[in-house]
C-alpha cells in the first residue's frame, strides 16, 4: 500500500519539477524521477504477499513466486529511461552551445 504512495509521490514530484522549474536539466531530472516512479508502480503491481523472487532454483515451488511479467517490462523501461535521458542531455548540451542559457523561458525563438 505504501509502495503505491511512493510511486504516486515520485510521479507527482517528477511532474512538479517539469512544470515549475525553468532549468532544462531540472526538467530532465523530473522526467527520470517520473520514470522511476512508473517503474516502482509496475513492480508493486506484480508483488504477491509472501512471494519469493521468480528464480526456480534449489526447491522454490512455482506457487509461491511473485509475478515475473511486470519485472520484464520494467527491465525494458529502465533502459529506455536512461537512453532518453542521455539523448535529452546531449541535446541540452547543444542548446547551451547556441543559446548560452539553460532557462527554458529564453529558448523560445519559434513561437506563434
Amino acid at each position: 500500500m505504501i509502495y503505491y504512495m511512493a510511486a504516486a509521490f515520485l510521479i507527482a514530484i517528477g511532474i512538479y519539477a517539469l512544470m515549475l522549474k525553468k532549468n532544462m536539466i531540472k526538467m530532465v531530472i523530473g522526467l527520470s524521477l517520473m520514470d522511476s516512479g512508473v517503474n516502482l508502480l509496475l513492480i508493486s503491481l506484480g508483488y504477491i504477499n509472501g512471494g519469493t523472487a521468480p528464480i526456480l532454483l534449489n526447491g522454490v515451488k512455482p506457487q509461491e513466486v511473485v509475478d515475473p511479467l511486470p519485472q520484464a517490462l520494467v527491465l525494458t523501461n529502465v533502459v529506455i529511461g536512461v537512453s532518453v535521458t542521455a539523448l535529452a542531455l546531449s541535446v541540452i548540451i547543444r542548446v547551451y552551445k547556441h543559446y548560452k542559457t539553460l532557462n527554458s523561458d529564453k529558448v523560445r525563438d519559434m513561437k506563434w
Binding site: 532518453v84 539523448l87 541535446v91 543559446y99 519559434m110
Partner: peptide, 12 residues
C-alpha cells in the same frame, strides 16, 4: 539553432 530548440521541446 531552431532544429535544436525544436528537439528539446519535442523530447520533453
Amino acid at each position: 539553432k531552431e532544429a535544436v530548440e525544436a528537439t528539446i521541446k519535442y523530447m520533453i
